[in-house]
Design a protein around this nucleic acid. Structure first.
Length: 471
RNA sequence: GCGGAGGUACCAAAGUGGCUAUGGAGCGGCCUGCAAAGCCGUCUUACGUGUGUUCAAAUCACACCCUCCGCUCCA
């Protein structure tokens, strides 16, 4: 598999440190508000990457963090903790907010079929490890203490900023906001921040009460759960410039070993041509979107563009995706209905689609190409319904497997109590078929129209009727 | 300003030296009680502009134009 490595800025053959074992860390959510469509897009790609690697028999261990403390409203180590700020506005305790947001995060991700990482460590659960980490950096001379706060001295780390195509110049840092006078260099960043007495989220440390700087947790957690060197580290493109260079500086200073072999960065999505941002107020939350749209439609939209390329979110784009999703679902329903024949030309096409899919995915996770290979295959299947039934079943199975790797569930397991909805629909379809045989078209059309109203579409094919649950 | 990514047909979106991309929209047809779906054809000798390299360029080189993104919040 070839992956575009942000560190070298080119596609490289992916070779794990230890044969088929993959150590993967992705930067997670600061849990103070609901996940938006941009978060979901990024996490969808990590999900696809993990599913694909596992399908190819890699043993993937995936860690994604929850930031539940210390992420300030300003990256330059000033401003307020967003969690405390939001909790205060809601008049609840910070940890109540965190718990609630984590639950909501899981709900949103589950709905989009974004599988969970193997572990989700929380920053507040790793405070002792963070303190040890900072002590180590102090002893090694990479950090210094000022009035109970600890800062990382970037001049001690010669390769600082190697990941970032443009590190901050001193002027640009100073130009944005006043440089914290405690810092020796404008680019130094906080490892540990002293807390004023009234601060709610604070922990005792050798330097007094304080809380961790937000770059620290990723270094600490990844090292604790995955070791000194990670195979893959993923994150949003915004982290390429500050968060990730700082992670490298901290981690490599402590271990003396290379921190990450492959850096992956997901591009941002825009909404109606505009960047989603707090200042623009155009956030689209996953849960709001899902009240209106089929989760699988959203999921297909999210993976139907390349992760390193931006994509615009708008209604027209979703309408186009709906057609794509319908086409996928129709193919499954059509195969189910087909009685089959005695031809066997599909055998080659089944091998071909798997080959094309793999080829696309191996090329830097080209999900668009992978979807296209499936679409081409579906066209083949549609013209090959006279193949042996067993081959048709194989065709269906490969479609479900491949779309499943992209996180798209095509088969609905609709079950209410002991009633099977598929069986119920089969019964209705059968009854309507008898009406049509009796040329009672008015009544049979009514049945079809009513079913469509409640979300079931019937299609009369030459050899029978199929049903599809519409979104 | 500094740095990055990109400009592909009506829309979306792959492709990185020669091989029909693909999906949708529109139009025409086949099938069908009707509808839907599916299939076939068509728009389609598309690749930001200009030079150059080459037997051959969307693909490589150089220059230019334009767009988006980061250097605020933010995946």
């Amino acid at each position: 598999m070839r992956l575009y490595n942000s560190l070298t800025r080119k596609k490289e053959e992916f070779i794990p440190i230890e044969n088929k074992k993959v150590r993967f860390y992705s930067c997670g959510q600061t849990v103070y508000e609901d996940a938006h469509i941009g978060n979901a897009r990024t996490y969808s790609y990590w999900d696809v990457l993990v599913r694909y690697l596992r399908w190819r028999n890699y043993d993937v261990f995936w860690v994604q963090n929850f930031t539940d403390v210390g992420h300030l409203t300003d990256d330059a180590d000033s401003g307020e903790d967003k969690i405390i700020l939001t909790a205060r506005a809601k008049e609840i305790q910070p940890m109540v907010l965190v718990e609630s947001q984590i639950r909501r995060f899981y709900e949103d991700m589950d709905a989009l079929n974004i599988q969970r990482s193997d572990i989700y460590p929380r920053a507040t659960g790793e405070i002792p490890e963070m303190i040890e980490f900072v002590k180590d950096l102090l002893e090694k001379g990479y950090a210094y203490e000022v009035n109970g706060s600890i800062y990382y001295d970037v001049t001690k780390f010669p390769n600082y900023g190697e990941l970032s195509p443009s590190t901050y110049s001193d002027e640009s840092v100073g130009a944005r906001i006043a440089v914290n006078p405690e810092k020796r260099n404008p680019q130094d960043f906080a490892l540990w921040i002293r807390a004023p007495p009234e601060h709610l989220m604070k922990w005792p440390s050798p330097w007094g009460f304080g809380y961790p700087g937000w770059h620290l947790e990723c270094s600490v957690m990844s090292q604790k759960y995955l070791g000194a060197t990670l195979d893959i580290h993923g994150g949003g493109i915004d982290h390429l410039y500050l968060h990730h260079p700082n992670e490298i500086a901290q981690s490599e200073a402590r271990t003396g070993e290379k921190f990450v072999n492959y850096w992956l960065h997901a591009a941002f999505l825009t909404v109606e041509g505009e960047r989603m941002g707090k200042s623009k107020g155009n956030f689209i939350l996953v849960r709001e979107l899902l009240q209106e749209y089929d989760p699988m439609l959203v999921r297909l939209f999210l993976v139907n563009s390349h992760y390193r390329k931006g994509v615009d979110f708008n209604r027209e784009a979703l309408d186009q995706i709906q057609i794509l999703l319908d086409r996928l679902r129709t193919s499954i329903a059509t195969i189910d209905q087909a009685s089959g024949g005695n031809k066997s030309n599909l055998r080659d096409d089944i091998l071909q689609v798997e080959k094309d899919f793999i080829e696309a995915m191996e090329d830097d996770l080209n999900t668009v190409g992978a979807i296209q290979s499936i679409m081409q295959f579906i066209k083949k299947v549609n013209t090959s319904l006279d193949n042996e039934k067993a081959l048709l079943e194989e065709a269906k199975s490969i479609i479900i497997t491949l779309t499943g790797i992209l996180g798209i569930k095509l088969e609905e397991q609709e079950q209410r109590g002991k009633i099977s909805i598929p069986e119920l629909l089969d019964l209705l379809v059968d009854l309507r078929g008898r009406l049509r045989e009796a040329k009672q078209f008015e009544l049979s059309d009514q049945v079809r129209a009513k079913l469509l109203d409640i979300g079931v579409q019937l299609e009369d094919k030459p050899d029978g009727t199929i049903w599809k649950i519409k979104s």
